[in-house]
């Protein structure tokens, strides 16, 4: 097993605030990785001195995954009913290779590397999570998107019999849960498809068998349990924008200066937070990944394209 610094994100190494967390803890667990992918290298892009990894039971038991209910404990309690094997992914739109693919075939021979990322929810709480993931660019390129592919859209599984939130009468979400990225965002080295966490297989409640992870955007962009990938020349309408366009946009970049009607985004509670110390800290532009991604938005008014 090779543990090396990621060659992709060199900025993390020259950042004086950057620190490398103890990786040894994760090395021992790598054997549990899913078939077809193995741990090869470690990357902690832009981790800061005060970024402590959130305990595993919080990462896996405190989730927003409305397909399983709206309480944050619902996904942990309900998601075990979801069958993730077999898992078929439909690829469509502006690409040469389209059709139905078995999930294992898509990631066959690919390397899941560890990426410790800050994870910022639009509800003003955050975590630090050691994901295991594969470069999204690598995954998408095998479908050979054409020049018309300006955006890529992802959809979550719809299976009401296994997902109680989808059969709930009191939900106003039009399933499937839909998200999207601009192609250059998708091709950014930070963008990964997550297949594991804490050196283990990804639990259902975290979006098994695979989910997106774009750490400079609010958590709702990082769509879970993906069954559809569509390349398109039109900006996809993501689920939250569809529900409440005045509050949620397409980009959803973490931005302390764009206030949300429900939550001030100026600060966040880093979990675990306690009654006597909420562990509140200022929110960073692009969730602290400005060096890696700010260039993607040059010339855009991010107050309007929120």
């Amino acid at each position: 097993m090779l543990i090396g610094k990621s060659p992709k994100i060199p900025t993390s190494e020259i950042n004086s605030e950057t620190t490398y967390l103890n990786r040894r803890k994760f090395m021992g667990q790598s054997a549990a990785l899913i078939a077809g992918a193995s741990l090869m290298s470690t990357a902690q892009a832009g981790l800061r001195a005060d970024d402590e990894i959130t305990p595993e039971d919080i990462v896996t038991q405190f989730n927003n995954f409305y397909e399983f209910g709206t309480d944050k404990s619902d996904p942990f309690e309900n998601a075990h009913t979801m069958t993730t094997d077999p898992w078929t992914v439909n690829v469509s739109g502006e690409a040469k290779k389209t059709g139905d693919f078995a999930f294992e075939d898509i990631i066959k021979g690919m390397t899941a590397e560890e990426r410790i990322y800050r994870f910022r929810c639009v509800e003003a709480w955050s975590m630090v999570v050691p994901w295991m993931g594969i470069s999204l660019k690598k995954i998408l390129e095998q479908f050979e998107p054409t020049g018309n592919a300006k955006y890529v859209e992802f959809k979550t599984l719809v299976r009401p019999e296994e997902m109680p939130g989808q059969s709930s009468f009191f939900s106003s979400i039009d399933w499937p849960y839909t998200e999207g990225l601009r192609m250059d965002e998708a091709y950014n080295p930070l963008s990964i498809m997550v297949t594991g966490v804490f050196g283990k297989e990804l639990p259902n409640q975290n979006g098994a068998p695979w989910r997106l992870m774009v750490p400079w955007k609010y958590g709702f962009k990082s769509v879970k349990s993906i069954v559809s990938i569509r390349f398109t020349d039109q900006e996809p309408i993501n689920t939250w924008q569809q529900l409440q366009a005045s509050e949620y946009g397409f980009y959803a970049n973490v931005n302390p200066s764009v206030s949300h009607p429900r939550w001030s985004q100026a600060s966040e509670r880093r979990l675990p937070s306690t009654l006597f110390n909420t562990n509140r800290r200022p929110t960073l532009p692009f969730n602290g990944y400005a060096e890696e991604v700010a260039h993607l938005y040059k010339g855009m008014d991010l107050r309007k394209s929120f």
Partner: peptide
């Protein structure tokens, strides 16, 4: 709250502000 004081996150969860 007593649980929470004895062991953080055990009573009100990892985000007690929101829980409370």
């Amino acid at each position: 709250i007593a649980l929470e004081i004895a062991e953080p996150t055990s009573g009100l969860g990892p985000d007690p502000a929101e829980g409370l």
